[in-house]
Design a binder for these strands. Sequence first.
DNA 1: TATGAATGAGAATTCATTCAT
DNA 2: GATGAATGAATTCTCATTCAT
Lengths: 216, 216, 216, 216
Amino acid sequence: MEKMPRRERERQEHVRHILEVAGDMFAKRGFFKVKMKEIAEQAEFALGTLYGLFKGKQNLYQQSIEQKVDELVTAVSGTMADETSPVLIVKGFVEAKLRFFFENLDFVRLYFAEMHGPPLYGERTLSIALEEKYRVLLERVSDALERGMSDGIFTKASPDVMATAIDGQTSAFVFSWLREVSPDSPEKEIEAAERIFLNGALVRPEGRAVSDGNQE
Amino acid sequence: MEKMPRRERERQEHVRHILEVAGDMFAKRGFFKVKMKEIAEQAEFALGTLYGLFKGKQNLYQQSIEQKVDELVTAVSGTMADETSPVLIVKGFVEAKLRFFFENLDFVRLYFAEMHGPPLYGERTLSIALEEKYRVLLERVSDALERGMSDGIFTKASPDVMATAIDGQTSAFVFSWLREVSPDSPEKEIEAAERIFLNGALVRPEGRAVSDGNQE
Amino acid sequence: MEKMPRRERERQEHVRHILEVAGDMFAKRGFFKVKMKEIAEQAEFALGTLYGLFKGKQNLYQQSIEQKVDELVTAVSGTMADETSPVLIVKGFVEAKLRFFFENLDFVRLYFAEMHGPPLYGERTLSIALEEKYRVLLERVSDALERGMSDGIFTKASPDVMATAIDGQTSAFVFSWLREVSPDSPEKEIEAAERIFLNGALVRPEGRAVSDGNQE
Amino acid sequence: MEKMPRRERERQEHVRHILEVAGDMFAKRGFFKVKMKEIAEQAEFALGTLYGLFKGKQNLYQQSIEQKVDELVTAVSGTMADETSPVLIVKGFVEAKLRFFFENLDFVRLYFAEMHGPPLYGERTLSIALEEKYRVLLERVSDALERGMSDGIFTKASPDVMATAIDGQTSAFVFSWLREVSPDSPEKEIEAAERIFLNGALVRPEGRAVSDGNQE
DNA sequence: TATGAATGAGAATTCATTCAT
DNA sequence: GATGAATGAATTCTCATTCAT
């Protein structure tokens, strides 16, 4: 009752560690530039050990991405689940997504390349799997938007299209970080993304005196 | 005085043709999955000929992307240049960008993977070059936004941040096309992108009665 | 005085069992296609256990063949030992050899490949060992033939050459079984091998009226 | 009209040369012990060249065997075709087969291992192909035997079984050469194989007075 | 003694690039 | 210039064997 769990625990730990190391390397240098031998060295295991733990390079790659996407989905879902008001759910999505990518900037390259780039191997299997995981988040945003629309908070429009828009907008801020040397906080972008999106989506825009017409 | 120009003209045509063919292949299958021999066959040239016209695979790849980005920049710049009003310039950007990517959907994968993905070769040279080309467009949008702000048309904010936001939003619609089997027109997305962005950016949102002030 | 023997008995049984299992696998799929791990699984032992019982893969392979060849030699020797007349000894050889291979058809491939094929490892050690074991049988046949020649039963010729001939002829019938889906009895071939060989070897061919008697 | 043939001629020559070299190596050391790099070195080509000319190691192996079997079949067929009398056809088979293998002793190991040994790769494709090629020869022998039987020259029996017997007997003499250091001529074995087989197959055995003729 | 995870040398194959024709 | 056969460095994956538990 102690032996089997030990072995299994170690195995899990090794897998997790290798996935971590490999994920970083793939993110920084891309699938084809990273050699299995390098991953083994970096992870301090023998080459053969990698093949005992993963089916092959492709499998290691996919798992390293899926693991991180699972983390992303968990983090963002968690934040959204804490809120009930439609506006706060949307804000929660923006905040959590931006914070997660800010903390995992290297992963950004991998994620977007895999989601929208040419398939690494013949099949688009991986990107489809990732889309499915991520779609859960967009659906929650979409639901919140729809609810907000019936409540008269958001302007009426296709909630899916609106979700796509806010998602793309936040991604754009993530990309902007890739261009900077070392962005030091995601706060400014979080604020901007929320403001720009909401002030268009809300029937009565936040913090803007719309009452009078003569603002000049 | 006739021979050399003919030769040169032919050469240019060959280069253009190969770039076209290679660009398509890279977009569909990714840099590493496409073999030089296949490009040669597809372009109906001998393998050696490719090496007479291009320095190597990497060079061919870069040129094929840069060529298309030049087309994109030309197309979008042209459309924006036709307009003078800030709002119309922004709308022009959205329309032209969406139309171009709609017509070159395969290229989308290549472009975004190269812009935001891990570097194919050690250096980020290519993505920097592409960013520079593309930045021109964003700067025009930014300028228009800034002008619109002083004119009291757009809410005051960092024009660069605003430009990033509209750019990301439009990209999101492009990505949504990648998921669809065969989107048949970009019109709906053009309209949505403009509406969502402008109704937040405009001091007096289009088609919305802002007159009343009693929202407390 | 009870414990050690039990241990030893178990060990012998394990060795025998593994040799049996491995022999079958090698016969069906060849030395290089069979993996040590598979043998371990099939034999229901851990991989490391195989290395406690055998020096390595090559050793396991050799032993598995030698074991079966010992069985062959024992079976055929036994049958021949029951007879005294030269003709019956030769018939005994043919019958016992054909029956043994009929019962161990898979082993046929292994045996002949190892006897006449390219050496699996650099050295021909194994095939030499097998030849030595098998030679015993051929010598008995040769002796019987020689005795039969002095007795005027067999035509005069080199008994070794004759032994080679009858041996090859029987092997040919064994090979013919390899081509059939599932031969159901070796009887026909036993009869044919004996008849064809003897009717040439005997001064007075069986079942043939050689009416005149004055050949003495 | 000169260029294409030159290239093609060279290619053929290269293929033939490599097949020759590889065949020898496979025969002496077996499929798995021979490395592609060694074949390349021995044949004085670059490793990659082998892969331009052959699909892979397996393909190279199969072709090297099939080429030699074709030679064997051609040689033996040719000899048999020169004869008309059943007895001479059978003798022709024995002589030509023994002479061919005597001249290609190394190939013997490869041929028999492949014909009767465990499959090198999962499938028995190659051995089936070889059997088909070789069967042609056995069928000619069988036909000759059948004709000889109706002519009253051979004892009545299944001609296929008889063909199997003579084939196996000759093979046995080939194997005996493998055991010798350097057999210097195949003559003795040719004579022995013919004598042993025919004196059993002939109604009136050679060199034996079967004086009476009235066996009806 | 039994176990099976870890090891790493070794091999097949690929493919960008060169260069003789 | 155009051609494509030849090159060989580079890389993935396999599997016999070891050894700590």
